[in-house]
Amino acid sequence: MTADVIVVGGGVIGLTTALELTRRGHRVRVRSRDAARDTTSAVAGALWWPYRIEPEALAGDWALETLAVYEELATAPEETGVRMVAGLHGGERLSGLGPWARRLTGAREVPEGLRVTLPLIDMPVHLAWLQERLVRSGGVLERGTVQDFAEAAALAPVVVNCTGLGARALVPDLGVRPVRGQLVVVENPGIEEWFTRADPASSTTTYFFPQPDGLVLGGTAEVDEYGTGADPRTAEEIVARCARVRPEIAGARVTGHRVGLRPSRDAGVRLEAGTLPGGGRLVHNYGHGGAGVTVAWGCARAAAALVG
């Protein structure tokens, strides 16, 4: 297929953007260095929530637009990987959140924090669903790298850069930095609701998400850390923090460890259009930090609008 748009990057941002472009009639190729199951997106805990993302005003709008899509996808959770699950943001208050929070329906303040039902996404299933829908819509998936935008411009007249952390070298954009997140997966001892307690200024967080393959415990937010191996002591600390909230977690059998590098950007999300070598169109859509899943559809639609 001769494409009129090539999307570079095959995580949740790249796949969602590519799918949105096909829905608008574009012939799209996605080139990704990694298989979707090996991207940072695949290891995300994946609760919808605008976490560690700027600019706040735009991120809130993108997040709410994405929320509406996930609410619809949650009607077929086995197919899409999206479920609506109740839970508690420990210590949170609506007054401490951005304007977007006032547009949440069903959020209720309780002494312990903020109770709300939100999308919780099983990322391997959701990424597979995005790929299947993309191919069904005429899109093409291919493995490979792009060394520079001149190479990409030879493949299609429009390039959409969804490379996440890879944008640091590709653009290059030295404001793109990793925020390392480590998770532990345990056999679920019967917990049906999610829980979070996060301080954006801290390198540690406490959360657990009931996913189909087990209870996902977290986590860390280590800026400028590139290591992707699981640290045993960190894993023990994660389990201990979660067990202080739900003691039954302490005895749960550990079934796996996950580490991902969130693609943060000092100046916030970059979503803008420019010019390729030779005069083609270049659209950037990267720097989503810990909220790529949360803003995926809002950013995809904004990027598609820039493509034209």
Results as ranks from 00 to 15, higher is better:
99 P>R: 13
296 A>P: 05
226 Y>I: 03
89 H>G: 01
297 W>R: 06
304 A>G: 05
71 E>D: 12
24 R>K: 12
302 A>Q: 06
183 L>K: 02
68 A>T: 14
24 R>S: 06
249 I>H: 12
57 A>Q: 15
87 G>A: 13
139 G>H: 05
13 I>H: 00
163 T>Y: 05
4 D>G: 10
17 T>I: 01
205 T>I: 14
296 A>E: 02
76 A>T: 14
175 G>Y: 02
100 W>R: 11
62 W>S: 01
74 A>Q: 11
179 V>L: 08
189 P>R: 10
91 G>W: 06
34 D>C: 08
111 P>E: 12
217 L>T: 06
36 A>L: 13
114 L>F: 03
162 C>D: 01
259 V>C: 11
31 R>S: 02
257 H>T: 03
216 V>L: 14
168 R>K: 15
52 R>H: 14
215 L>W: 02
229 G>F: 10
187 E>Q: 15
66 T>H: 11
35 A>D: 15
245 V>M: 07
225 E>A: 14
67 L>M: 10
233 R>T: 13
147 Q>P: 00
238 I>P: 06
239 V>G: 01
195 F>Q: 01
256 G>W: 12
241 R>E: 06
206 T>C: 15
236 E>I: 00
272 E>V: 08
137 S>L: 03
38 D>K: 11
130 L>Y: 04
294 T>V: 07
4 D>S: 11
205 T>F: 01
151 E>R: 06
16 T>Y: 00
131 Q>R: 15
232 P>C: 05
98 G>E: 04
305 A>W: 07
249 I>K: 11
254 V>Y: 08
91 G>P: 04
149 F>C: 04
146 V>G: 01
201 A>N: 11
39 T>W: 05
254 V>D: 07
256 G>V: 12
197 R>H: 15
